[in-house]
Design a protein around this nucleic acid. Structure first.
Lengths: 339, 339
DNA sequence: CTGTTAGCGCCTTCAT
DNA sequence: ATGAAGGCGCTAACAG
């Protein structure tokens, strides 16, 4: 009992029961009689015993800890993913530690190195923007421990990736407007040089096609989706007049457009403007007339956590089962092999 | 070299040098010759050695890890505090793990229990709203390890507390307006049943007094600082007419007030409306005419981290030194004793 | 400067 | 159902 810390040996001595039995009792092993278990547990509580996980982890080579590595927690999307991860992980008996790369590769490398040293059982991560090679991640995988990637894809061997299904989510958002009666739907898109925005555009077009609404290229506003872009687009919308619905890839542009329209005393009926991928409740407060269709962040967290825990424990995940949760909002590539 | 993991013994055998020397070399001990150190380090790199911190921590009873326990990371204030903590902690060679209590006492208790088991070297925390007794924290303190509290005060023995200096910050904000030429300054206050808002009100009054501006109780709008309250207050401001400046305890009410005034085509000159304690950049985007005076969150993180590390390493912190950083924005109560 | 030895606290065969 | 013994990987005292 050095340093005021109580060990299983202290309990062992106090009770005249061998420390191995104490250990078994504290781990609720079936190989200890109910009576002795009770005695030991009571004593443990009485003396304020707290397991030394360092020793336990060293011995078992398991830490019951998973790490989440992502650019920064202050982005609402990431914070929400974390919430989803924690909920699932805690249920499965895992601790979660959160590490911010700040989109800096060196920092990310250092984090991974620390995670290796600390032998976390698995990693859920969204790689930094600077990450183009995966040597540091490979080093972790070599320990035989799994990594699940989300949001930003990573082609590292034998890893799962979870991504938003841009096509389907965009389709859902557009369809929502069509079902509300909109026929002339403006679409705020990011640069169509970017794959992600092409996928979303395709979802928008597919929904129109499905309802026999002909696509009008003038309704598609390609921009950087900044505040100013929102205002510019709003002005164009006013000129076009016929437009009766708005679907935006992003909340910033949509909010400024809506506020501009309001400042011109244009009445905006409920539900005729939607954002496809927003997760930030602040936007909803600023501009309540905006409806958000897909809220994938929390689900991403839950699924990432499920996948990872299953891989840690060498189970196979039933992807179909997971998909039920999803309504096709997400795409899961599970290239991990059972060991 | 079981499980593909390389230990100091593998290096030891490969080189015919004792493992204790290898250990010393890897820790850059001065008691190893430069040559052998080099040989060992090279070999370590060659075979991809990664220290097993679990073993090291067990042996040394130090984890070089500090934990941050707070309600939730998604609040910008807390995210900013974390940024400050991480910056300082990493410089001092500590890892940071982040734990969210979600303002739930049971969760907080479980977190502390895990932190005890994992023997983190110190804790920086903002207690949950449900936390009224401190037994679980006491259990951690018994290990002889320090806790530093911030934002929400905690009277646990021998702990440091870091809080916003409400009086001084409020004084600063009000003074800012006075120096801008405002004579009739409205003040949006939260419920004056709450100590914190009384302190802020006193700061406001003190600044007026200092400049011989007489306090007009009609200029003080006590409310819950909600959006609706902001609009109500804005209407009253319009009636009063004379008001030429606004100081708000909180951004929500201030934003809605400013937006209401704008909607009535009231021109709002720059810098005549300020928020005392806002840290959220979103507010600045929504309502650029609002100026923010005090930005204490990052500083709180840095100072908390400094204090904690000093306590872990048994140094005394020079509080005066810290205060230079602060401009009296914060109050530090350092009741921790050196051991 | 390097090697020997022991032990951090726990878990897990193996034996009884 | 319980006890005895060894070792996870590392480091720190003590020798030399």
């Amino acid at each position: 009992m050095k340093n005021g810390k109580i060990t299983i040996h202290d309990i062992s001595k106090a009770l005249g029961i061998d420390s191995s039995t104490v250990s078994r009792a504290l781990n609720d092993s079936p190989r200890v009689s109910k009576k002795t278990k009770e005695i030991i547990l009571n004593k443990a509580k009485e003396v304020g015993y707290q397991r030394n996980s360092l020793a336990s982890n060293l011995r078992t080579n398991k830490t019951h800890t998973i790490a989440v590595v992502l650019p920064r927690v202050s982005r609402y999307f990431f914070a929400t993913v974390i919430a989803g991860i924690e909920e699932t992980a805690y249920e499965a008996g895992y601790n979660v530690i959160i590490c911010q790369s700040l989109d800096n590769l060196n920092r990310e490398k250092k984090i991974i190195s620390t995670l290796i040293s600390n032998r976390v059982d698995g990693i859920i991560m969204s790689i930094s923007m600077e990450t183009t090679n995966y040597e540091h991640l490979q080093a972790y995988k070599k320990l035989g421990k799994p990594i699940v990637f989300f949001d930003r894809p990573c082609s590292l061997n034998n890893c799962s990736n979870i991504n938003i299904n841009n096509f389907q989510s965009s389709f859902n958002a557009t369809k929502h407007l069509i079902l509300k009666g909109c026929k002339h739907i403006a679409y705020f898109s990011g640069s169509l040089d970017i794959e992600l925005y092409r996928q979303r555009k395709n979802g928008y077009i597919a929904a129109l096609n499905e309802h026999n609404i002909k696509v009008n290229e003038h309704y598609i506003f390609e921009s950087n989706l900044s505040e100013e872009d929102g205002i510019k687009s709003a002005k164009k919308i006013l000129q076009l007049k016929s437009i009766d619905g708005l679907y935006s890839s992003n909340d910033t542009a949509a909010i400024s457009a809506m506020q501009y329209l309001k400042s011109k005393n244009i009445r905006i009926p409920e539900d005729i403007a939607v954002v496809g991928f927003n997760n930030d409740p602040i936007s909803a407060i600023i501009e309540p007339s905006l409806t958000t269709i897909n809220q994938p962040a929390f689900k991403i967290g839950k699924i990432a956590s499920n996948l990872l825990v299953d891989q840690i424990e060498n189970k196979t995940t039933n992807i179909k089962e997971q998909s039920k949760l999803l309504n096709s909002e997400l795409i899961i590539r599970n290239s991990s092999k059972k060991v």
